[in-house]
Deep mutational scan, measured.
Amino acid sequence: MGMPNRKYADGEVVMGRWPGSVLYYEVQVTSYDDASHLYTVKYKDGTELALKESDIRLQS
């Protein structure tokens, strides 16, 4: 078993793309699913969504 190939840690605050949009919002990573390679993130309004790594970026 190798290390999970994840870029962002639980609790890390990053920018997540809103689905169907080009806009990124501040989100907190809450979990990562090794099987689906999706991150569960929480937006400031409390919305929780699963995002692909390509829809997440570090805060500038």
Rank of each mutant, 00 (worst) to 15 (best):
H37T: 09
G11K: 04
K44H: 12
V13N: 08
A35F: 11
E48Q: 11
S54W: 08
K42Q: 10
M15Q: 09
E53S: 04
T47C: 08
D34C: 08
V14H: 02
K7Y: 05
R17M: 07
L49M: 11
D10I: 13
L51I: 10
D33N: 10
N5V: 14
I56Y: 00
G11F: 06
S60T: 14
L23E: 13
E12W: 06
S31D: 09
Y32A: 00
R6T: 03
E12R: 04
R6F: 03
E53A: 06
D10M: 06
G16R: 01
E12A: 12
V27F: 13
S54I: 09
S31P: 00
M15N: 05
Y32S: 00
Y24F: 12
M1N: 15
T40H: 12
E12K: 04
G2S: 08
T40V: 09
K42F: 07
M1E: 14
E12Y: 04
V27Q: 00
R57V: 11
V14T: 02
P19R: 06
Q59N: 13
T47D: 03
L23R: 10
S36V: 07
T30L: 15
V41S: 01
Y32Q: 00
S21D: 07
V14Y: 03
K42D: 01
R57C: 11
T30A: 09
R17S: 03
G46W: 03
P19V: 03
S31K: 09
M3Q: 15
D34L: 09
E26L: 12
R57M: 15
G2K: 03
V29W: 01
P4K: 06
D34K: 08
V14P: 01
E53G: 05
P19E: 05
A35I: 15
M15A: 06
Y43P: 02
R57S: 09
L38R: 08
S54L: 07
V22D: 15
V41Q: 01
D45W: 08
V41K: 01
E26P: 12
S21A: 06
D55P: 00
S60I: 13
E12D: 12
Y43R: 11
Q28K: 12
D45Q: 03
G11R: 03
G16M: 09
L38D: 04
S60G: 13
Y39E: 00
I56W: 01
R57W: 10
Y32R: 01
R6N: 04
T30S: 09
K44P: 11
P19A: 04
Y39Q: 01
W18R: 10
V27R: 00
W18K: 11
